[in-house]
Design a protein around this nucleic acid. Structure first.
Lengths: 347, 347
DNA sequence: TTGTAGGCGTTATCAA
DNA sequence: TTGATAACGCCTACAA
């Protein structure tokens, strides 16, 4: 491995000069001639700075700790990780991931990351919940992703659930549906109530009545199927907004049993949580994507901005995701996430 | 942050002694008394060794590079990551993850990991394919996970697809099915042909005929649904082994349209790729899990054994996954993965 | 059995 | 403009 000393020796200069030049701090310190020479010999030797040595000296590692609950059990962890990774990579950072799925030893895992000297942490749940941040993290730069800090001390990036409910319902309205049902989730998730509000708001804005009989919350399996069956028979909706695609499946099952075809006799929009419908059906028709990638991306951006001490104007951010690569998602990218921060709480 | 020098000063000894004791190399070198004193003061001060400094000296980082294609697009990446992580953590390693999903700059990402000095790489696809390992990795300890090295130079951990097909079919046979269909995948995946062989072997072993009319390979959407419909009407199978749960969905849809109920009129076993049926239906009945966690786990174990220069008896491994935490998967853990290695190629 | 000193590859301070 | 030189925290001959 070629070191800085090698470059210095061959270029006939000192380590100090090499360091200055290769870090772009040579303005007015090193003669442009020698600087150029140094750059060339470095390139010729294929010199790559040793991050460890640099980190030991600067006590900055450019590593981010990515802590996630539930990577293993939810399909979309990858989206968040990828988003975080892209942002990190763009700024010269790298991700040290740790999953605390089943582990009792969360604290130990965190301690391990700290020994490696990560510059900050991304703390991610896999569905937005009120969260207590582990105490040991509170001394570090920290951003929550798809989770809400109970103490409101740390910024978080969360899905805009209201908009998800609103846009999904709007799409059914635009498709001409007259009796639009909401098949929600019985668990008290943040997403559940906000999507419901979005659903109701969309109906209101379109001048349509809000009928509680068209709204059922279900869990899984048999009881869920029966509840949806009842909804079918008693209310005969022509449009269904489903909390997720697991719930959408019940609608498909009920429709099939009644000889109805989705996309012709009834319309269904479900929030895509499992990808199954993306593969089996025409995705244009039925799914709304959660902004997992975006949350990871913006979470990492925010974290890095904290680490590097930049002052970020969070008021225009991340509503305007300019640096984001274009989304070729099955639906227009109207669903975004939002940043909750001390500087810009909008709720 | 408390350093080794601090511990030495307070214990009234030298750094050297502290280092020896804290690394367990004090046998016959340090008086047990002083060793104990050192351990206590270290504990009292909450001393945590600085990995960076250690790595700089030893040129071993105890970091593993985890490279994955398709984390974002397949639901089960998390399982592999988690398995790798558990194994890594058990041996004092940590995972530096990089996903190359959409990126053209794979080489750059790898270069980044190398600058951080990872000790080796886990190279993972998200479904077993013949793979060319990036050239820059070939100088490192390397293990492939859910992928097969075309050059056969590096070990890999792969699902035992034959067994998956065999066991799934066996379950349908045991459930009393007489006409068992295979709904496969038209793409030329390794899994496809091996599962088919497993399906056929199970039928043979049970003395049942192999009828090609009961075997259809499909892709997605409309055509797939029509092909399965045809299978229903022309062959009237009473059991279905499905390549994955996306394909199982077509069977459910067709059954519902014919007034048939899965679990009563027909039986379905699908390989679980999307989790949707795990949530919507009785998982005992219908799904076979792929050993993602196990592949990650054993891949990391193998990699670490290479890095540390242990000589591993791969002939009993990983068929006997003793160190694995008990699997409380919905089905008995009869489906394992297998290690392909120079020392023990069984095919 | 213990301590001293050198070095891992950087960056940063200060003279020259 | 440059180049010694001293850290950063740890490991490890080697000397005492």
């Amino acid at each position: 491995m070629t070191t800085m000393q090698d470059v210095a020796d061959i270029a006939g200069v000192s380590k100090a000069s090499v360091s200055l030049v290769l870090n772009g701090r040579d303005a007015g310190h090193v003669k442009p001639q020698t600087a150029e020479l140094i750059r060339q010999t470095a390139a010729k030797l294929g010199y790559r700075p040793n991050q460890l040595a640099r980190s030991l000296r600067t006590s900055r590692t450019h590593m981010l700790g990515f802590i996630s609950e539930e990577v293993a059990t939810t399909p979309y962890a990858g989206g968040i990780i990828l988003g975080a990774q892209d942002a990190a990579s763009a700024y010269g950072y790298v991700l040290l991931t740790v999953s605390t799925d089943g582990m009792a030893n969360e604290e130990q895992e965190l301690a391990a990351l700290m020994r490696y000297g990560v510059d900050g942490f991304l703390y991610s749940k896999m569905s937005n919940r009120i969260t207590d941040v582990p105490h040991s993290l509170t001394d570090y730069p920290l951003v929550l992703v798809d989770a809400t800090d109970r103490s409101k001390r740390f910024p978080s990036v969360e899905p805009d659930e209201f908009r998800i409910g609103y846009d999904a319902t709007k799409r059914l309205i635009d498709a001409g549906c007259k009796r639009i049902a909401y098949v929600g989730c019985s668990e008290p998730l943040i997403a559940q109530s906000r999507r419901l509000h979005g659903y109701q708001a969309a109906l209101s804005d379109a001048g349509m009545p809000i009928d509680d009989a068209l709204h059922v919350d279900v869990l899984n399996n048999g009881p869920a199927l029966r509840a949806v069956s009842k909804l079918f028979d008693e209310q005969q909706p022509d449009g269904f907004f489903c909390f997720n695609d697991a719930r959408a499946w019940y609608v498909y099952e009920c429709a099939a049993r009644r000889g109805l075809t989705v996309g012709r006799d009834i319309s269904v929009v479900g929030v895509d949580n499992h990808r199954v419908f993306a593969e089996t059906l025409d995705p244009q028709l039925t799914t709304v994507e959660l902004p997992h990638y975006e949350m990871g991306y913006w979470g990492a951006c925010r974290l890095i901005s904290i680490i590097e001490g930049h002052d970020v104007d969070t008021s225009v951010w991340p509503e305007t995701p300019a640096p984001l690569p274009p989304l070729d998602a099955p639906i227009p990218a109207t669903i975004h996430c939002k940043l909750i921060d001390k500087k810009s709480v909008r709720e």
